[in-house]
C-alpha cells in the first residue's frame, strides 16, 4: 500500500493531472449540454445520446495516463522510482492502480454529469435509468475510462516519450479505427474487432450513425475483449520495462 500512496503523491503533486481531469470532465459535459439544448427534434434525446460526447473525455484520459509515465522517463524520476522500488512490476502496478482509479472516478463524473445536465436542460425527455442497458450506458463509462487508462499507461511505458505516446494513442483512437472501415470488403469486419470500437459497443453509443449490425460479441463480451487488449498491452509493457535498462 505504501507504493500506491507514493504514486498517489506523485500524481497529485504536479498540475497536469488536475488540468487533464478538469478538461476530461468539462469537455464532454459541455458537449452533452450543447446537444441537449441545440439538438432540436432531429436528435431524439435518449440515455444513450447523453453519453455521445464522452469519447472526448476518454481522449483526455489517454493523455493524462500516458503523461503519468512518460514524464517520469522525460525527467528521470523513473530511475528514482526504480531505486526506491527495485521490483519494477510492483512499482508500475502501483502507478496503474492510482491512475486507473482516477480515470474511473472521472469516467463516472463525466457519465452522470452528462446525464444530469441533459435531464436539467430537457426535463421532458425520457432519461430515467430504468433498464440494465441504461445503467450500463451511463455507469459503464467509468469502466471504459479505467481500461483506457490501462491501455494508455502500457503504451506510455513502451514508448517512453510523451509526444510519441500521445500522438500514437490519439491518432489511433481518433482516426485510424474510423479509417479502417474505408477498406473495401474486409474493412467492416476488421473494425468489429478493434479495441475502441469494442469500448463504444459496451457503452452502446455507435457514433458512426450506421444502422445496427450483427456484431460478434455482446456488450459485456466487448468490454471483456477491450479489457483483455488493455491488460495485454500493459503486461507486455511491464515485462519490457523490467528487462530494459532504466
Amino acid at each position: 500500500m505504501s507504493l500506491v500512496a507514493a504514486e498517489r503523491i506523485k500524481l497529485f503533486s504536479t498540475r497536469s493531472p488536475w488540468w487533464c481531469a478538469l478538461v476530461a470532465i468539462a469537455l464532454p459535459i459541455g458537449f452533452a449540454a450543447l446537444l441537449a439544448s441545440q439538438g432540436g427534434d432531429e436528435v431524439p434525446l435518449t440515455v444513450g445520446t447523453t453519453q455521445a460526447a464522452n469519447g472526448l473525455g476518454r481522449a483526455v484520459i489517454m493523455v493524462m495516463a500516458a503523461l503519468a509515465i512518460t514524464t517520469e522517463y522525460r525527467f528521470g524520476t523513473i530511475r528514482s522510482t526504480f531505486q526506491a522500488t527495485p521490483n519494477r512490476v510492483s512499482a508500475l502496478l502501483a502507478k496503474t492502480a492510482v491512475v486507473t482509479t482516477l480515470a474511473a472516478v472521472i469516467g463516472e463524473l463525466v457519465a452522470f454529469g452528462s446525464w444530469a445536465v441533459c435531464r436539467w436542460i430537457k426535463p421532458e425527455a425520457d432519461l430515467a435509468l430504468d433498464t440494465a442497458d441504461d445503467w450500463r450506458s451511463v455507469a459503464g463509462v467509468g469502466l471504459v475510462f479505467a481500461l483506457t487508462a490501462v491501455l494508455a499507461l502500457g503504451v506510455g511505458i513502451l514508448v517512453r516519450q510523451t509526444a510519441g505516446a500521445v500522438a500514437l494513442l490519439l491518432v489511433y483512437s481518433q482516426l485510424v479505427e474510423g479509417l479502417v472501415t474505408l477498406i473495401p470488403r474486409i474493412g467492416d469486419d476488421i473494425h468489429q474487432w478493434l479495441p475502441f470500437f469494442a469500448a463504444d459497443q459496451f457503452i452502446g453509443n455507435d457514433a458512426s450513425g450506421q444502422p445496427p449490425r450483427d456484431l460478434p460479441l455482446s456488450p459485456w463480451g466487448y468490454l471483456a475483449y477491450f479489457a483483455v487488449i488493455a491488460v495485454a498491452v500493459l503486461a507486455v509493457a511491464i515485462i519490457t520495462a523490467n528487462r530494459r535498462d532504466a
Partner: peptide
C-alpha cells in the same frame, strides 16, 4: 532527475 513542477518536499515525500 526531478519533475520541474513538483515541489522539493513532494519529491521527497513520495
Amino acid at each position: 532527475w526531478v519533475h520541474p513542477n513538483r515541489s522539493a518536499r513532494a519529491h521527497l515525500r513520495w
